[in-house]
Design a binder for these strands. Sequence first.
DNA 1: ATGGTCGGCAACCGA
Length: 271
Amino acid sequence: MPLKITTWNINSVRLRIDLVAKFLKAAHPDVLCLQETKCPDDAFPLKRFQRLGYEHAAINGQKGYHGVAVLSRVPFERFDVHSFCGKTDCRHISVVLGERAGLRDPLTLHNFYVPAGGDEPDPEINVKFRHKLDFLDEMREHPSLRPQSSQRAILVGDLNVAPFEHDVWSHKQMLRVVSHTPVECEKFDLVQKAGNWIDSMRVLTPEPEKLYTWWSYRAADWRAADRGRRLDHIWTSDALAGRVSKIKIAKDYRGAVRPSDHVPVTATVEI
DNA sequence: ATGGTCGGCAACCGA
């Protein structure tokens, strides 16, 4: 059966709840993973999602910053949150889809919001970049992010790294810009290798085709300049190799009224 | 070479 999973950095779920509703009615994913909800759990618009058919929710939010959530049409067995770098930042939540979702073999879904890392690409003088690099090191070491060869798992989110040459508008001009520096791309690659994760977006659309999921708010005309980056990712464990039949990057949502700077990315997974 | 824009939340921080 096909399972549609969307990841979207929404940059305030409360401000953009109508845009989210529009997307859900149009795209009908089974599971929606949000990042940067910027919403404490007791203020999360759960009822709105329930009315839209997303009755199952796992949320990990805080006031003002960060925050992740999973909204689902199908029930899950449980959810978990991990903290990283000894901080209370809400940057991860995972759910397990199993028998209650009609699956004989369980499937773990991780939703991440990796630190952006600030502006200065030097960990010695920029503690935010140090934090980003440490966060990636901890992801690499984390046992639950190293699925066994038989384990079905999907990792999505705003990973805030555009790892390949054609994940950015200009590789040369981005080499010293946080999100595309060699040191973070190397650590990103090690996270992926440690868990035998498959980059499903690049399986279906190999380099050198450009792929972007984010366009800066600061561009005068984001569409004309098209200086995008691929910051959002959908990885599958080796047990799901070849099972992603489609990836849709909903670029139109960048042109919405009061858009997020990220657009929804949806994978169709045959499970 | 520089500054450009958002959102939260009430002065700036984070992105």
